[in-house]
């Protein structure tokens, strides 16, 4: 590293990116419009890229820089384009979207999940002799993953659910770039490709659902709800 004095700055910048990354996950739970979900998702993906670049510089890893570039192209650019092509105007809708819990309750649950994620991460950080970088990325990644899963569970509309799913994947990556920076690059490329396939398929399904029931509220599909009960 040519300029060792900038290292603490980069670490702080990475931690700041982590903070905003988590904030975007909270936003996904709370916002009322699909369009804002899209904006938050793009912002979260950009913070993920920023963290990958910071870690790439700090750990002298070209792979991480490449991961950052791949994410930069696939998530903020290709995914919104794919969704627009498949789902159409529904991605940019400004109408209110419903969810199972009201917003304050959802935020409180998201907060509880974040605390849970930190408690879960502590023994792992101790066992792995983790430094500052992993110390900030792993708990934030875990928290983002749980909040993403919660978003999928409480949203009833297809588009915000997709962003919940990709938020989970973003979060796994956010933890992954710190704990496994040498993870095979080709695997990372394949994972990014997997997310694109997911978006494409979900887009096709959403369009088909819209044709069938006139709305993208997939939560309304309850015909198969289990007939068998214990």
């Amino acid at each position: 590293m040519a300029y060792p004095e900038v290292l603490p700055w980069l670490q702080s910048l990475n931690a700041l990116a982590g903070g905003f990354f988590l904030l975007c996950a909270f936003g996904l739970v709370a916002v009322r419009q699909a369009q804002n979900c899209l904006r938050l998702f793009i912002a979260q993906s950009l913070f993920l890229c920023l963290s990958a670049f910071m870690l790439g510089i700090l750990l002298h890893s070209r792979d991480l820089i490449a991961v950052g570039v791949i994410d930069f192209i696939s998530k903020p650019v290709i995914i919104p384009w794919l969704l627009r092509r498949t789902v159409g105007g529904e991605v940019h809708t400004r109408r209110e979207i419903t969810q199972v819990f009201n917003i304050p309750t959802s935020l409180l649950i998201a907060l509880a999940l974040t605390i849970g994620a930190y408690l879960f991460a502590m023994p792992l950080l101790q066992a792995g002799n983790a430094g500052k970088l992993i110390g900030s990325n792993l708990p934030i990644g875990l928290a983002g993953l749980l909040i993403g899963a919660f978003t999928v569970a409480v949203r009833r509309e297809a588009v915000p659910m997709v962003f919940g799913l990709i938020c989970m994947e973003n979060s796994a990556f956010f933890a992954g770039i710190a704990i496994a920076p040498d993870f095979p690059l080709i695997a990372e490329v394949s994972i990014a490709f997997d997310v694109l396939i997911l978006t494409f398929i979900v887009g096709l399904l959403t369009r088909a659902v819209h044709r069938q029931i006139g709305t993208t509220a997939v939560g309304a599909l309850t015909t198969l709800r289990e007939a068998e009960k214990l």
Binding site: G141, L142, L145, G148, A149, V152, A158, M161, L165, M168, E169, S171, A172, A175, G176, I191, D194, L198, I201, V202, L205, A208, V209, Q212, I213, V218, L221, T222, T223, L224
Partner: peptide
């Protein structure tokens, strides 16, 4: 309608499972 419901549930659960396994 039923096939789409099944496929939706399938893809959502499969992807959640995949991300957890990825971690």
């Amino acid at each position: 309608r039923e096939a789409l419901e099944a496929a939706w549930k399938y893809i959502v659960l499969m992807f959640i499972g995949a991300v957890i396994a990825l971690l």
